[in-house]
């Protein structure tokens, strides 16, 4: 799946390096991903199970963890459990969810646990590298599909103007999400809405925060219903 939102538009981060840990239970995928990543991305550790992952992350303290949603071990919680187990590091270490699954409940669950973004495993090495730098810089990474999930979960009607509650997206946030779902990159979104890329990133981060913190009934209900699909 292409993720045009990640087209290397970040100015900062060039020339710097990022230390990452790859957590995935398939060794073939880990080595393939390592080979695909940019040399600026330094892989400091790998793990294949929940327990290993928590241990490796605590030991190496990477800036970014590339985390598979489905993992063996632990209590069966997969990537969510790894994030929960590394809660103490959550400020310094950012999690980017990687998944072969398109299932909404998997993705939303791991985002709500604290991941800063989600990309599918089929995206290219360049795109993943961009996503890693973006997440390391504190921004959120939304693929079109994740934006679609968000729109589905929060509904497509905007909140009232002075309404900053967590249960609804503002009109501007909705616009940004819609454009991302349509396949626009952050740069294209900025151009389309006549705002700066920084503002787009702020909106996306706000949406991520709402997705993580909203306790609204519909969100859980929606996730539960998705399980039936």
């Amino acid at each position: 799946m292409s993720t045009p939102a990640l087209d290397g538009t970040r100015a900062e981060g060039q020339g710097e390096t990022v230390r990452v840990v790859i957590v995935d239970d398939h060794a073939i995928f880990r080595s393939g991903l390592k080979a695909d990543l940019d040399p600026r991305v330094i892989v400091v550790g790998e793990a294949g199970t929940v327990e290993q992952a928590i241990e490796v992350i605590a030991r190496t303290r990477p800036e970014v963890v590339l985390l598979d949603v489905h993992l063996p071990g632990g209590l069966g919680g997969g990537g969510r459990e790894v994030i929960a187990g590394s809660a103490a590091l959550l400020g310094a270490t950012k999690f980017l969810a990687l998944s072969v699954s398109d299932a909404a409940e998997d993705v939303v669950a791991v985002i709500r646990a604290g991941a800063r973004g989600y990309v599918t495993k089929t995206i290219s090495g360049t795109e993943i590298t961009d996503a890693v730098f973006r997440v390391a810089g504190g921004d959120a990474v939304f693929s079109p599909r994740l934006a679609g999930f968000v729109l589905d979960a929060f509904g497509t009607a905007p909140a009232d103007i002075a309404d900053d509650e967590l249960d609804k997206l503002s009109a501007r946030e909705l616009e940004v999400m819609r454009l991302i779902a349509r396949g626009y990159s952050y740069k294209e979104v900025a151009k389309e809405l006549f705002i700066s890329i920084k503002t787009v990133e702020t909106h996306v981060s706000a949406v991520l925060r709402k997705l993580q913190l909203s306790s609204r009934h519909e969100l859980t209900k929606w996730a539960a219903e998705r399980r039936l699909l």
Partner: peptide, 9 residues
């Protein structure tokens, strides 16, 4: 060529 569909509603 890949054709990715995202649907809402």
């Amino acid at each position: 060529n890949a054709v990715d569909v995202v649907s809402v509603g």
